[in-house]
């Protein structure tokens, strides 16, 4: 009886997912059709905006000669490094702010200020400090993720009900246990949200920084194509940047966020 119910439930969940994917993809498909129709009806010059065909051909070419993957790999490497560093520094600092009102009072205004500037505004000074290349771009990414992660960690820690901390103390917890078994897990849903938001900023910052400060990566790919008047390659690059982010966000970050929140029933 219950087995039958479960199979039914599984099926409806799967079809629900198909429907969700469909309703997400349909508008994008419509956009594609409108794009191609517009280019044809108004006979748009390919140097101004190419049709779907040339863009796909440019894409196939960059896949075939391997340059696309070199650019993607370079971009991913920087995002991974910058984000990892930002999490390693941002989470402990956020927790420190969360448990120490003094530290939080001093740092919160600074965080508000720097959150506004996070990312792109740092590109010029980053190139002065780190030169053109890996260091400057990684710094920009670090910067975009760090403030958001630290601030969200702070929110997460201060959102842990006080009774939970009191319960841990009165059960004999020491500081280390408090950190690893109460504060970190309690703040985790917020930390994941911070990482997701921060990566969104970082991805935009990455493209901008790569246009200015390097000779490899997706942003540079756009920039280079412009120098050669390869509009179709520019458009292809833009599509790749958009799709890659959607994939990262929808397939990794969003499920991770949902899982941590749902698993622990931490509805805030």
């Amino acid at each position: 009886m219950s087995a039958v119910g479960n199979i039914g439930a599984g099926r409806s969940a799967a079809s629900e997912r198909v429907r969700a994917a469909f309703s997400f993809l349909l508008p994008l498909f419509v956009l594609l059709v409108v794009w191609e129709a517009t280019v044809r009806i108004f006979d748009v010059h390919p140097g101004i905006f190419p049709g779907v065909g040339p863009v796909l051909r440019a894409g196939a070419e960059s896949v075939a000669n391997g340059t696309l993957f070199l650019h993607i790999a370079a971009s991913f490497g920087r995002v991974l490094t910058g984000t990892t560093l930002a999490i390693l520094v941002g989470v402990p600092l956020g927790i420190l702010m969360g448990v120490s009102p003094g530290v939080s009072t001093v740092l919160t205004p600074l965080f508000r200020f720097f959150s506004v500037l996070a990312g792109i505004a740092w590109i010029p000074i980053a190139t002065l400090w780190f030169g053109y290349g890996f260091g400057a771009i990684t710094f920009v990414i670090f910067n975009a993720v760090f403030f958001v992660v630290a601030y969200n960690t702070l929110l997460g820690v201060s959102g842990i009900p006080h009774a939970l901390r009191n319960a841990a103390w009165s059960l004999g917890a020491d500081r280390k246990t408090m950190l690893f078994e109460v504060l970190l897990p309690g703040a985790l849903p917020n930390i994941v949200t911070g990482i997701r938001t921060g990566l969104g900023f970082a991805w935009r910052g990455l493209i901008a920084a790569e246009m200015i400060a390097t000779n490899m990566g997706l942003g540079y790919m756009l920039f280079l194509a412009r120098d050669f008047y390869r509009t179709e390659l520019i458009v292809f690059g833009m599509v790749v940047i958009g799709i890659l982010w959607l994939l990262i966000d929808r397939l990794i970050l969003a499920p991770l966020e949902r899982r941590t929140i749902e698993r622990w029933g931490l509805v805030r």
Binding site: P161, A163, L164, N166, A167, A168, S170, L171, G172, E181, V182, P185, G186, L188, R263, W264, G265, L266
Partner: peptide, 15 residues
């Protein structure tokens, strides 16, 4: 730990 506390808001660790 010599004084155990039971809270009105159960205060169980959700994780």
């Amino acid at each position: 730990p010599d004084r155990g506390v039971v809270f009105q808001s159960h205060a169980l660790f959700p994780w």
